[in-house]
């Protein structure tokens, strides 16, 4: 459905994203994981043609056989919203505060179809039902501020799936929400993806969140795919040192007495911070923060295969003899 090939995005001569090849099949769910500044949003935004104006995009992004790079704006606008939906990061900043919810959902439908008023209203109710919001009459008449953050995110999901898109892009859809609400929204996205046979491209900085929703994970760093594979295999047997550091940094719920309280030895962070655009090192992008960097990290690192469906670009990968996640 979605095929990215030799994608190259640059701003003021600095490369901000480069993806050799990445494929998403119909109905498949893939997660992009990385820190802020890793370039994950830049890749996603270039799919939608929403990258900053100063960005130069080359290569190929094919969606259902249609080349999206260089496509006329009008044609892209038709694909966006109809075939590709977007769920934004902060629901409280993404709805029009002066417009009733019903009208905002209706807008998404009427923009891409010439359905009559009644049919649109029927569809709005159906969508509100789809995203498991109670009391459609009240929701339709409400203004955004009358709904909670979680409810607003459900409205935005309703808008995103209004035209039954083949692909839903969710850019950190739960970062602004509470942990309990996060679980509900993740469940909703997962259910909708299955019900509607809709592909999902899920962007997050949390591996735990991505694993819950996605089958495939691409770990992004320095605008490149550092590691790619099945979610479980990436989390249980990471190859790339960056992936391993991200996993170790995850603050997970303590499961036993040892993990509870005071045992700060189990709290890890990824050393250093993400460099600014244009300040990433040559060769392996991660090598200046990596405790395991070797000489060959200085030259270009191609993608290599670890297992079937598991790829990475690490010169000094974690061997099977090593226990991952405890090395930092």
């Amino acid at each position: 459905m979605l095929i990215i090939e030799n994608l190259h995005v640059s701003i003021a001569g600095h490369t901000v994203a480069e993806v050799e090849k990445l494929e998403l099949a119909n109905g498949q769910r893939i997660g992009f994981v990385g820190e802020s500044g890793s370039g994950k949003s830049m890749i996603v935004m270039s799919i939608l043609g929403l990258q900053p104006k100063s960005a130069k995009v080359t290569g190929s992004i094919k969606f259902n056989g249609v080349e999206l790079i260089g496509i006329p704006a009008k044609k892209l606008a038709d694909i966006r919203g109809r075939l590709i939906g977007l769920v934004p990061q902060d629901p409280t900043k993404s709805l029009n505060p002066t417009m009733r919810i019903g009208k905002q959902i209706a807008e998404a439908i009427s923009l891409h179809s010439n359905a009559g008023k009644k049919a649109i209203l029927r569809r709005v109710r159906e969508l509100i039902d789809n995203v498991r919001l109670p009391d459609p009459d009240r929701i339709i008449k409400s203004y955004p501020h009358q709904l909670s953050g979680g409810q607003q995110q459900r409205v935005l999901i309703a808008i995103a799936i209004a035209c039954e898109p083949k692909l839903l892009i969710a850019d950190e859809p739960t970062t602004a929400l509470d942990v309990t609400v996060q679980g509900e929204i993740l469940n909703l996205l997962l259910t909708l993806s299955k019900e509607l046979d809709m592909g999902l491209l899920f962007v997050s900085h949390e591996l735990g969140v991505v694993r819950f929703v996605c089958q495939k994970v691409a770990v992004i760093y320095g605008g490149q795919v550092a590691e790619f594979g099945n979610a479980d295999s990436i989390i249980k047997q990471p190859a790339h040192r960056y992936t391993d550091a991200l996993i170790a940094a995850n603050i997970s719920l303590p499961r036993n007495e040892i993990e509870v309280a005071g045992n700060t030895n189990q709290l890890h962070s990824v050393r250093g911070s993400v460099p600014s655009i244009g300040e990433f090192p040559d060769g392996c992008r991660y090598r200046n923060r990596c405790d395991f960097a070797i000489d060959s990290c200085r030259s270009f690192v191609p993608m290599r295969q670890k297992d079937k469906d598991h790829y990475h670009r690490c010169c000094n990968p974690i061997s099977s003899a090593e226990k991952p996640n405890v090395t930092h």
Partner: peptide
């Protein structure tokens, strides 16, 4: 996520070192 643990660890270690009383508020039980 990459630095959350670091901030948390720092609070915990400084508390130990300086014998602080700490109240930590979070929506995340973890």
């Amino acid at each position: 996520v990459s630095v959350q643990a670091q901030a948390l660890k720092m609070i915990a270690e400084l508390r130990e070192q300086l014998k602080l009383t700490v109240v930590l508020v979070s929506h995340d039980l973890a």
